[in-house]
Design a binder for these strands. Sequence first.
DNA 1: CATCCGTGGAG
DNA 2: TCTCCAAGGAT
Length: 400
Amino acid sequence: MAAAPTPPTPKRPGKPKPRRIRPTGDTPPPSPVRHYADFTAALLAWFQTGARDLPWRRTRDPYAIWVSEIMLQQTQVKTVIPYWERWMQHLPTPGALAAAAPETVHKLWEGLGYYSRGRRLQEGARVIQTEHGGVFPHDFAAILALPGVGRYTAGAIASIAFNQPRPILDGNVIRVLARHYGIAGNPRARAVNETLWSLAQDLVTTAATASAPPRAASAFNQALMELGALVCTPRQPQCPSCPVRAACVARRTNRVGELPATPPRPEATKRWFVAVIPEWAGRYLVRRRPEGGVNAGLWEFPNLEFTGAAATSTGADPVAAARAVLGPVPCAPTPLATVRHSITRYRITLTAHRAVVTDAVAAAALPGEWRTPAELAALSFPSAHRKLCDRLPHPARPTV
DNA sequence: CATCCGTGGAG
DNA sequence: TCTCCAAGGAT
């Protein structure tokens, strides 16, 4: 139980219930109240000296922080930095994003993955325009109501941008808290997950109380994640340099390597795709992926998935591949490239062929649109197909 | 509660 | 090459 009053939390009405930390070690926990204060103070002090200079830490603009948080979902900091810089340069305000062409959003997101994030970001910007007068909402419930914003992201924006003592719980925080407090069990299972959220709430509340430094809620939540990213890492954690190592249950009980529990992942499934890139008069045929599906609105080269024995044999035979993908049209298919990539639990092999077609074939209604390499550069592709662009005779480089 | 959604870095 | 997983959310 925290020393400070818990801020109003719509999710937990009723009397404030004392919370119990359940270390699985044999050592009883120290007094929670005193420990929380020690923990938050140590982490805040460490963060002041050890924080990385990330671009979105140079601003308090809630829009900028929102964009960063959406980009950072399941995506590493190093990957996000250039995307965030470009995005903020082109779409610096909710108004600019709300008014942007969807193609602009796609292009700025190209290669980042989970493309629905970009679409929902724009939907959110339109909500801000229409329901909040173009001003990013301070109210937690309003932030949480934005599309693509869940419990974690809402807490991150509320705390980081507005210094509200809202908890966050991401992969980093799960790891730090599970180890520090010796919390066993699957952190994604309901009971364990709620224990972790409660702990995160108590800690940020403690951090934000009276004698705290300015913007302590903001700093503390970032410090939790920073510790998980730099010190309390999944593999080879740097315990000797941890600012809270003395009270760490996992370290005292020699279970740093076992916490947090990691449930088995679904087994990877191999899949094979064959793409055929029709070429005519210096142009290539591309098609747009349908709305509502994977990679909605992005462009791709004509392709098909093959299963079983047909997969490898068709991938090796350009003529059979062209026939399967394009139908019985005369063309001269030649191998172009094979691209391997992973999509969630799928391990995909994409084999591509160039297929020069005659005027008559080009005039016939092949499904798609003819584009020059320069035009391809302006479109947005999933990474695998963007790689195919790069292998064409005149590579089309992305330009934003 | 389980599954899906993309990609790239690190070891 | 292969595995894990990274500032998760929606369905």
